[in-house]
Write a protein that binds this DNA or RNA. Structure first.
Lengths: 336, 336
DNA sequence: ATAGAAAATGAAAGCGCTTACAGAAAACAG
DNA sequence: CTGTTTTCTGTAAGCGCTTTCATTTTCTAT
């Protein structure tokens, strides 16, 4: 069943059928109805390939995500897909992993599939070396690139970020206000947003008049068990702390495990703050105080920006959204 | 840059270039190299639309998944994508949600995109009413449909399942062996695999000579907090138990929360077993004994079956894999 | 060398759709 | 009822690729 068959059944030319399919206004109402009826009755679906060949667009957006088993990213992908769909676009998901080479490969793949734009979710897509970001700029020469939680100033690249600096600054400030003196900072990624978070931490420490102590800044693996071991090793080597702020909820869970294993009471002796307000944060006991970065808003904003870009409307290169601190059971004020 | 340009630069006809692209054997080595060089130098990529038009295939598999934020499904999607990719196929992911209408819509969408096959991951795709599964059979008339964790006997439908019945039977048996007498069963989904699990539970209970008590079978929401509330409500209404076996890890976490809130010691007073061996299971304290259903194997097996189907090799309609019980800290033998 | 078989190549006809252009029908004014 | 617009419809030329079929080149065995 192709457009020709439809045109025959409806007694018109294929051009007219095509016009009906594409909603062209140059079709009389009577003809339109006739064609629509035939299409419905015969269950006709236009061939996407032929359509793509003619229009050179597939109404499809490529989504790149480093790891869909990361809860934050999985959620983001979910919201992105839905938001795109409700705007009439389909999506093409790639789970790229962390390797630069793979990212390049998948990006090329998406370009070869002729997607209309690319959304990269996760700051993992920004390499520390500027030269390594070149593959993104290359893609942006062809189609718009949307970056979630990363920032790259370049033409045709549009970024949506949450204000990680401010969020960590505020959260750390709260720990200081609660009279914590040795605030441990756990992080996993050195990405753009990772740097922002760290900067927020440092600024808050300085602002509270606490000494800057690099031993309190600990890089951890993402996996809970490994991270727990890392913390325990640091403690065995002399590290002490009375609060922890983490760049990810999973690290906060690791910190909680460590505390439980070593008998430190939460929140009496140690306050802990996570990041992402993920499912993990309400699995623990006590439940985790954490920073909510509003994944859904992040995603819908990105898609709405993208729609504007595709529609030819100008959009700022960077859109920043704010976060909230969700207070639960792992933080408490201590009397000095 | 199209195939014509390449053919000109290489001094051959477009037919020859096409043969090189498609790895046809009827090209002399010298010509092949010449063409390959030109393609590389000019960065040429074949246009997928034109290619699809000619070949009527896109080398793309549609993946349907009800909710990519579910850790089990997210993992599955990840493994599926990778496995497909390494077999030269791209994938097209749809997060359909639970609504039958949406599932139908997305399935239609995938068909209209001319995917070469469809993988449905999660038993959510099998409705209790047989008529509601008709949309799957319709799709199977056109392209192969692979079902993960669901079973539907139909031509061109191929199912990969883990042996949920046996897994729950064994796990429940172990609780019996540990002298537990009131084994609570928590489940969320009434899907095919959900039914299998429940049947395994009932059979084990019967086999151990314990009385069948429907009050011990509790349907819970998936969300941890809601599930916890549900359990607490049942307990307030008179429910007692000394062991819990769950159809999902999240329900086990909920059970643990309930126990902690009501002061029941795990595993001294209550044993708990989860399902999926997800990240959740090592977040809790003590860590959760759980059933590992080997997502990765499930996915690679499915893809490998699919490749055979696409290659024209016969494949059984059902492939069943076995599970393992991973013993951690939430189970213990009690002396009677 | 040469007939015959095998391998390599090219010309051209689609694949199903969009769209520029031209022509027909309808609408309108006088 | 004619001449002029305006609206609608059809014809045909692509879009970039695959593939059949015919043709040319190369190889093999005599």
């Amino acid at each position: 069943m192709n457009i020709y068959d439809v045109s025959q059944k409806a007694g018109v030319s294929i051009a007219t059928v095509s016009r009906v399919i594409n909603g062209s206004s140059n079709v009389s109402e009577k003809t339109r109805q006739k064609v629509l009826t035939v299409m419905k009755e015969s269950g006709y679906t236009p061939n996407v390939f032929a359509r793509g060949l003619g229009l050179n667009t597939m109404q499809t957006i490529g989504i790149m995500c480093s790891d869909s088993s990361d809860p934050f990213l999985a959620n983001a992908v979910y919201y992105l897909e839905h938001s795109l769909r409700s705007n009439g676009y389909d999506s093409f998901l790639c789970c790229t992993g962390q390797e630069l080479q793979d990212k390049k490969k998948y990006l090329k793949l998406l370009l070869s599939k002729r997607v209309d734009a690319i959304i990269m979710v996760g700051s993992q897509y920004l390499e520390t070396s500027k030269k390594d970001n070149h593959y993104i700029l290359d893609a942006a020469k062809t189609i718009p690139v949307m970056l979630i939680n990363g920032y790259l100033a370049a033409p045709n690249v549009f970024c949506t970020l949450c204000d990680d600096y401010q969020a960590v600054y505020d959260a750390t400030g709260r720990l200081c206000f609660d009279n914590r003196k040795q605030i441990l900072y756990l992080y996993n990624s050195r990405s753009y947003s990772g740097q922002q978070k760290l900067a927020g931490y440092k600024a808050a420490i300085a602002n509270a008049g606490l000494p800057a102590d690099d031993r309190l800044i600990l890089h951890c693996p993402k996996q809970i068990q490994e991270a727990t071991a890392q913390i325990s090793a640091a403690v065995a080597a002399g590290l002490t702390f009375d609060a922890v702020i983490c760049a990810e909820d999973s690290l906060a869970v690791a910190a909680m495990k460590h505390c439980r294993q070593t008998g430190k009471q939460i929140p009496e002796e140690v306050s802990i703050i996570g990041y992402n307000n993920s499912e993990l944060s309400i699995c623990c006991e006590p439940e985790l105080t954490t920073i909510d970065n509003h994944v859904e808003t992040l995603c819908t904003t990105t898609v709405s920006n993208l729609m504007q870009v595709l529609g030819g409307t100008a959009v700022p290169g960077r859109t920043t959204l704010s976060n909230d601190l969700v207070i639960r059971g792992t933080t408490r004020n201590v009397q000095k």
